[in-house]
Every structure is written in C-alpha cells, then in structure tokens.
C-alpha cells in the first residue's frame, strides 16, 4: 500500500509538471497572448507596457516566469491578469458549486447507467433493451449545451417547472432548494454518460451472465436476484466504474464548462471558460492543475476500488 501511494504521488508530480508546462507554453505561444499588452488598457504607450512588464516580471526569462507562477499557485498568491483578483480565492468560491454539480451528476450517471444497463442486459433484444439503446444513442449524440439550453429555456424560463439557472447553497436555501437548482444541470451532464455507461454495462453484464461461475451460482440454487447482483453484476461493474471515476474527476476539475455556463452556476468550470476567453493564464493554470490533481486522485481511488472488487489485483 505504501509503495502504491509513493508511486501515485510520483506520477502526480510528473503529470502536474507536464500539464503546467503545456498550459504555460500554449499561452506564451498563441498570438495576442502577451498579457502586458492587454493589461495596459486600450491605447497604451510603450512605456506603460514596459512598466507593467517590469512590475509583473514578464521581462524575465520564460523559465523564471514559469517557476514564479508555479510557486505562486501553491502559495495561494496567484493573481488574475484581467481583474487582479486572487485566483485561488475565486476558485474557492466556485468550488462548492462545482462540487455540488459533480456530486449529483455523478450519482445520476452511476444510478442511471447501472439501472438502464441492467434492464438491457437482463432482457437482451427486448423492447426495453432496444428503447434504452435508442435513448442511449440519442443521449450520446446530443451536445450537452444544446440539451442544457433546451431544459433551461423550456422547463425553466418558459414553463417555470424548474429554476432556469443559478445556484443556491444549502446554508442559503436548505437541501431541497439546493438540489432543485442542481437537478437540471446535473441531468444535462448525465445524459451522455448514462448513455455510454448503460451500453458498456450491458455488454459486460451479458458476458458475466454467460460466465461459468454464474452457471455455478445457479446450480447452487441461489435466488435469481443473488445470482445477478452478487455474482454477475459485481464482476461486470469493474470496467464501468473505471470510466465513471475519470468522468467524475473531469467534472470536478472544471470539465463541466458548458453546463456551468448555460445554467449560470458560476462554478470552477464557468471561471475556466471566462478566463480562457480573456487569455488570462493564472486561473487557467490553477484550474488545469486542479483538474489534473482530481484525475490522478480519482485514478488512485478507482485502483483501490478495483482491488476491492477484484482480489486478483494487487496494488
């Protein structure tokens, strides 16, 4: 286990380094990327720009700039170029929103994926299976901003069934209102993944149901329910859980850019979207690193879960 943790930490350092260099390089290379020019306002003089360069350290070698930015990121001193607010403070504000969204959407994905996958696998090629397949294909092909937009507009603004957007924290509006505001965006994200997961699980569960050990379980006189859940599902869940873990990590790391924007949730994803639009490197760097950390940590959690689900795997 200790070896496992050390290996994972080492890989995290490596991943963070690679990702941060990449982000930094991209924003230094792209045209119009010079932050001093943009920070200097509409009609800056060369002197003004030079002054900003000096003040922010843009005149230093790129490696020094990179090192400084990384140092500030982990110090919590990182300042946005566009509005000069503290990046980490801003992320801290957005994080509960993104976390809440991740929580509900990942729950929906998991429950929806398992339920539909099981329904399909237990009655392969039945009407239910074909219907689920059709819905899954639709879910997979629909862009999330389109589905989110439709939901926000028709169910929210027009029909008024659900809130059209915005975020209400538990302390502000209680659990119910919190959930109510997150329902539509969480569903919008989940559609795609429920579609994918149900197909993945269907295939793996069908394989598992044909496995010899399931036949053994049946020959032992176990109930159908026990045979399916204990023996087949447990084995079939492993690949699906892997996908799920990564998707959760991505949502957590600001991956729900479109959904957060459409539903006006103002979480980490929306912040990432805004910052990217204005070529504001520090927030992009911080959020990307956060996402990378989330992916690495989730990966480790999945591996531990794996080892629990399948004892043949050793950490």
């Amino acid at each position: 286990m200790i070896g496992f943790i050390i290996r994972r930490l080492a890989s995290m350092v490596l991943v963070l380094f690679a990702v941060s260099v990449l982000v930094f390089a991209i924003f230094n290379i792209i045209p119009g990327g010079d932050p001093a020019v943009r920070m200097a306002g509409k009609n800056p003089t060369d002197v003004q720009i030079e002054a900003i360069r000096k003040e922010w350290g843009f005149d230093k070698p790129v490696t020094t700039q990179y090192a400084k930015m990384i140092e500030k990121t982990f110090d919590g001193q990182l300042i946005s170029y566009s509005n000069r607010e503290n990046v980490l403070e801003r992320i801290k504000e957005g994080l509960p929103r993104t976390l809440s969204l991740t929580f509900w959407s990942s729950l929906f994905m998991l429950v929806g994926g398992i339920a539909l996958g099981m329904l399909s696998a237990l009655r392969p090629n039945s009407f239910a299976d074909r219907t689920i397949n059709a819905i899954a294909v639709v879910g997979i092909s629909l862009p999330v901003f389109w589905i989110g937009g439709l939901m926000s507009y028709y169910l929210g603004s027009k029909a008024g069934i659900i809130p059209a957007g915005g975020y209400v924290s538990i302390s502000e509006g209680g659990v119910l209102d919190w959930f109510w505001h997150l329902l539509a965006p969480s569903l919008a994200i989940s559609f795609l993944f429920i579609g994918i997961y149900s197909r993945v699980l269907r295939g793996d569960l069908l394989d598992a149901l044909r496995a010899d050990y399931v036949r053994t379980a049946e020959a032992k006189g176990l109930s159908k329910r026990r045979v399916v859940v204990r023996h087949a599902l447990r084995n079939a869940l492993i690949p699906m859980i892997t996908l799920w873990g990564l998707d959760v990590a991505i949502t957590l790391g600001g991956g729900a850019v479109l959904t957060e924007t459409v539903f006006d949730l103002d979480g980490v994803g929306a912040y990432l979207a805004d910052s990217t639009r204005s070529l504001d490197v520090p927030p992009v760097m911080a959020i990307t690193l956060l996402g990378a950390i989330a992916v690495v940590v989730m990966n480790a959690i999945i591996d531990i879960l794996y080892a629990y689900l399948d004892p043949r795997i050793r950490l």
Binding site: A211, G221, R230
Partner: peptide, 30 residues
C-alpha cells in the same frame, strides 16, 4: 433442489468459481 438434492461440478474449476468472492463465502451462501 439445485445444490441441495442435486449438485453439480463443472469442467473448469477456475472459471466455475467466482474470481472475486472468497471460497468460504461461495460455499456458505449455498
């Protein structure tokens, strides 16, 4: 009747046992 009055043993003992459950559990549940 299955497992109680008529029991069955299969060809491949590796694939016929559930790989992710302890053998004691697999017997006890029966």
């Amino acid at each position: 009747i299955r497992g109680k009055r008529i029991a069955m043993v299969f060809q491949d003992p590796m694939s016929s046992l559930n790989p992710v459950l302890r053998i004691g559990h697999q017997i006890a549940e029966q």
